[in-house]
Computed example of a mutant assay.
Amino acid sequence: MTRHDGRIGALAAVDPSAADLVDQMVDLAVRGLPPGYVGGEFVFTRRGRQDADGRWTAVPEGRSVRYSAIVALGVAPLPADAQRAALAGDTVHDLVGRLVKGLPGVTNLGDAALIAWAAAETGHADTPRALERLAELERGVRSGDPVYTVEAAWALAALAAAHRATGGTPDIDRWLSHARDRLLGGLGDDRLYRHVIGPASWYRAHVGCFADQVYPLQALARLHACTGDTAALRAAGRVAEGICAAQGPEGQWWWHYDARTGGVVEGYPVYSVHQLSMGPMALLDLADAGGTAYLKEIALGLHWMTSRPEVEDELIVEELDLTWRKAARDDPKKIVRGARAVATAINQGARLGVLDRIYPPMTVDRECRPYELGWLLYAWMFTLPRSGR
């Protein structure tokens, strides 16, 4: 598939080699999804296994409603033949229908939000059922209860998609207003988002990961695109400016941030999905909504995949149609993350630099989760429409 317009075309105008890489990765994603599609849903991961001759395979493990919903979003912009190629003969409506049918057993707010988002965006006939289940779970969240920032962002994105699909109804607009106020309130006066909106453990209360920035940025940009909410666009722009200012010299989208200042608490792991998919997805949505276009930062992040300084192993594995998940420290107990979270809680900007020497980033995590390929397709094949308000 060669693509000369849309988001890849915009990138090509700035960095043709980065656009070529995206072309390659979109094709890989379509090929790489079917091996993880089992019985009408996606596995949790394809885990690398090495045989006696040193050859790698990827073994499917578990099941994931969440990753299935993300893949549904990613496959939705594809033409029908590519949808069937990615879903082993199914269409996105088949996948979404099964997800909605299983919603009575879904108790996680984020999972329900993703399913409602996929249903609304694909125009599925069961969208009202999906929105009602999301509303039921929202009613179970008491005022003042902590809510994960990522889940709050997905709820807003789902309702923005429902608003766009319906033109707005009293119920949808009421839920949308609540989700909007919660997410904007979670940012407050901070530079970036924290991991939790509401009470959190003292030593990590100030910390937010990359996902905690990407998904609110995306949801707020989409809210502005469909309603003209200028406060949402300003907040999205603040977050985008913050993560781009903190981006590593080789394009790394770092892992954990001090939400108060925007400083990096702990950079590693660096995830393939952040470089190829989530970072571009949110920043391109911001550009589509009328915000700043960070195409140079996106291109720099993409180039990390092929020229990263941390590990020699290739992260793009064409023969298995996947990407290995991350470049990480050899720190299975996450000592560096915990120590730096405590240190920065006590003293803003503390680094504990000795930990970089004790736990250098030189390990590759050999697994690939379906959402990594799903978000890749969504990032590059989707274009966010604007209401014109």
Rank of each mutant, 00 (worst) to 15 (best):
I8V: 15
I8A: 09
A10H: 10
L11K: 03
A12L: 06
S17K: 13
A18H: 09
V22M: 13
Q24S: 14
M25G: 12
V26E: 03
D27S: 15
L28C: 09
A29Q: 06
A29D: 08
P35R: 10
Y37T: 04
V38Q: 15
G39H: 08
G40R: 04
F44R: 11
G48I: 04
R49Y: 12
Q50L: 11
D51V: 00
A52H: 14
D53V: 03
R55M: 01
V59R: 15
V59F: 11
G62L: 10
R63T: 15
Y67F: 15
A72I: 00
G89L: 07
D90I: 09
D94L: 02
D94Q: 06
L95S: 02
L99R: 00
V100S: 07
K101V: 08
G105K: 06
G105H: 05
V106H: 06
T107Q: 13
L109Y: 10
A113V: 04
I115T: 03
A116R: 04
W117P: 01
E121K: 09
T122S: 00
T127D: 07
T127M: 12
P128C: 07
L131W: 07
R133C: 03
E136I: 07
S143I: 10
G144S: 12
D145T: 10
V147L: 05
T149K: 00
A152E: 00
A153M: 10
A160Y: 06
A161C: 06
R164Y: 04
A165G: 03
T166Y: 11
G167K: 11
T169G: 14
D173S: 11
W175Q: 14
H178V: 14
D189S: 11
R191G: 02
S201H: 05
A205S: 09
H206L: 13
V214R: 01
L220T: 03
A221E: 01
H224S: 12
A225M: 08
C226A: 12
T227L: 12
R234K: 15
R238L: 09
R238E: 11
V239N: 02
I243D: 07
I243H: 08
W255N: 12
H256C: 12
D258N: 06
R260Q: 08
G262D: 07
V264C: 03
V264G: 02
V265H: 01
E266N: 10
E266H: 15
G267W: 04
V270K: 08
H274D: 13
Q275Y: 07
S277W: 03
M281F: 14
A282H: 02
L284S: 15
A287D: 14
D288F: 04
T292H: 12
L295M: 08
E297L: 03
L300A: 15
S307V: 05
R308Q: 15
R308Y: 01
E310D: 14
D313V: 03
L315P: 01
V317T: 01
E319Q: 05
E319L: 01
L320P: 01
T323V: 13
T323Y: 03
T323H: 09
K333H: 11
K334N: 12
V336L: 07
G338R: 13
A341V: 02
Q348W: 06
G349M: 10
G353S: 09
D356E: 13
R357F: 09
P361R: 04
P361G: 06
M362T: 10
R366V: 12
E367F: 10
C368V: 07
A379K: 00
A379F: 05
T383W: 02
